[in-house]
Simulated assay, not measured.
Amino acid sequence: MIYDHIKNLGLYKGIHPNLDKALTYLEENDVSKLTVGTYDIDDKNAFFFIQENILDDSLENRFEYHEKYLDCHLIIEGEELIRYGSGEKVELVDFDKDRDIGFVSCKRSYDFDLVDGYATLFFPEEPHRPNLFKEHLRAVKKCVIKVLID
C-alpha cells in the first residue's frame, strides 16, 4: 500500500510498466475536469472511473481486495476515510474472478484521510475499504484507477 500526495506519485514509476502508464496519464491530464464515467488509458492494462459516491458510516468489518488489479484512489472533491486491512483475514464470500473482487474481514485495520491531493495505491491481495464517512461530508467525487499487475 502506498499513501502519498499526488505530486509525489512519479517517484513510484518503475514498479510496473502498466503503473507507469497510469502515473504518466495523471501527470499529463487533469482528471478533475472529467464527468462521471469510465475512461481508457491502455485498454485493460490501465483504465479509470470517475465516481460520485455516497460515503458509508457503518462499522462493518468488510474489506475488498483484487487478484489482478492495483487500485489507485484519488479524491477530486470532498474527503473520505479509507481503511487498510491487515493481519488474519477471513473470506466472507467466494472471490468473483470475472469482476476481480473478493471480500474479507481483517483482524486489524489502519485508517487514512483521503483528501484533495492525496492518493492511495492498493496492490493485488491488499484488503481495503474505501468510501468511508469522514466528519461532516456525505459524498465525494473521486477517481479510481485500475492497473493490471501481471
Rank of each mutant, 00 (worst) to 15 (best):
T38E: 15
G85I: 06
V90S: 03
I101V: 15
E27L: 10
V31Y: 02
N18L: 13
D30K: 11
K21N: 06
P130N: 09
L148F: 06
Y12S: 13
E28G: 02
K33I: 13
E52K: 14
D71V: 11
D43V: 11
E52T: 14
E125M: 14
Y65W: 08
E52R: 15
H16K: 03
D4P: 00
E91D: 10
L34Y: 13
H128Q: 11
D71P: 10
C72M: 15
L114T: 03
I76D: 05
R129E: 08
D116W: 00
N53A: 11
K44H: 12
K21L: 15
N29D: 10
L132N: 05
D40T: 12
V147L: 09
F95I: 02
V90L: 11
L59S: 00
G78V: 12
E135R: 14
L81M: 10
C106S: 03
S58R: 07
I15F: 09
E27Y: 04
K13E: 13
L34C: 02
F48W: 06
E67Q: 14
L11D: 13
F122R: 10
E64F: 07
V104P: 09
H66V: 00
K142I: 04
Y39R: 03
N61E: 04
L114Y: 00
D20S: 00
R99D: 10
L92P: 08
V144N: 08
I101R: 13
S58G: 04
L81C: 11
N29T: 14
E91A: 10
D30Y: 08
G87I: 00
F49G: 02
T120W: 08
I6V: 15
L19G: 03
F112C: 06
R138S: 01
S58M: 12
H16P: 01
L74F: 15
Y65E: 09
C106T: 01
K33L: 15
Y3H: 15
H5F: 12
N8P: 05
L114S: 07
E60V: 07
K141Y: 08
P124C: 05
D100T: 07
V36R: 06
T38G: 03
H66S: 03
M1L: 01
F47A: 10
N18I: 09
L9H: 12
Y25H: 13
S86H: 01
F49W: 12
V115L: 02
F48S: 06
D94H: 10
N131T: 09
Y84C: 01
E64D: 06
D98E: 13
S86L: 01
Y65H: 09
L148I: 07
D56F: 08
D113M: 07
R62E: 05
D56C: 06
D56L: 11
I101M: 12
G37M: 12
I75E: 05
C72D: 02
I149S: 04
Q51R: 12
I76T: 05
Y12H: 14
D111F: 04
F122L: 04
Y65R: 05
D100F: 03
E28T: 15
K146A: 07
N18C: 12
Y12I: 05
L121V: 02
D56A: 02
D30R: 11
K13W: 10
E80W: 15
G117W: 04
S105I: 10
I6K: 08
V140I: 14
